[in-house]
Design a protein around this nucleic acid. Structure first.
Lengths: 108, 108
DNA sequence: TTATTTAATCAACGGTCTTTTATATGTCAA
DNA sequence: TTGACATATAAAAGACCGTTGATTAAATAA
């Protein structure tokens, strides 16, 4: 498989890193059903408000979620694009592995 | 989407965390063509030997790669199972999002 | 305006992860 | 056996991340 472009690699790293936290993965699952406001997320997560805000920012910075302000409230939703890109590159990696593993290239 | 089982969630977190590092993602891409020995990985990565060993252990602990000893050398290869499980849960998340996002559930 | 509510930001602490240097283990060749 | 080579492990330092408590900003209600 050709080596990933630096830019793309860095983006993938940032996204995997964002996914590598239990609270953030939970948030993502809460959002998968559609937009949820921060107040409702807070009600289900049992963490302090600033901490939730921090995790949401982390997910935002990785483009995994989007925020929409509506008066006093802010609604978050998943950004399917980033997830698809990640899932796609994972699948491609597995496919590539399958294809090449039959060829049994010797190394040392 | 139903909330993920604690055990499965923890495994996913550990794996995303393992993927959330540039060196380790590089290693995975180097391995996708088939088994590679540590010496060849070292030649392509420009990091110290103990550090490479550390990253390989991290990937092993996440079940993302397997090690096979062959005399003096150790060959690493990707473990497709873990990658498939990750990719699958990502795709499921995206699919679920697509399905539900048309229903537009109101929150606050 | 003033008070209240929702959410984001800041500073600081503690813990975990990465990185380095040094050492150990295991395997083969001489 | 001894020496050389390939890789793993240990200990310590530094950087980074998650968490908390206090504060701020923005929007509405009184």
């Amino acid at each position: 498989m050709k080596q990933p472009r630096p830019k793309k690699l860095a983006r993938a790293v940032a996204r995997y890193r964002a996914l590598g936290d239990e609270t953030r993965l939970r948030i993502l699952h809460l959002l998968v059903g559609g937009e949820v406001c921060v107040c409702d997320l807070a009600a289900q997560l049992d963490i302090t408000q600033p901490l939730l805000s921090f995790h949401l920012k982390t997910l935002r910075d990785a483009d995994l979620v989007r925020a929409r302000r509506d008066g006093r409230w802010t609604h978050y939703s998943v950004d399917p694009g980033a997830l698809e890109e990640l899932g796609g590159s994972l699948s491609a990696l597995v496919r590539e592995h399958r294809k090449r593993s039959t060829l049994a290239v010797k190394c040392c």
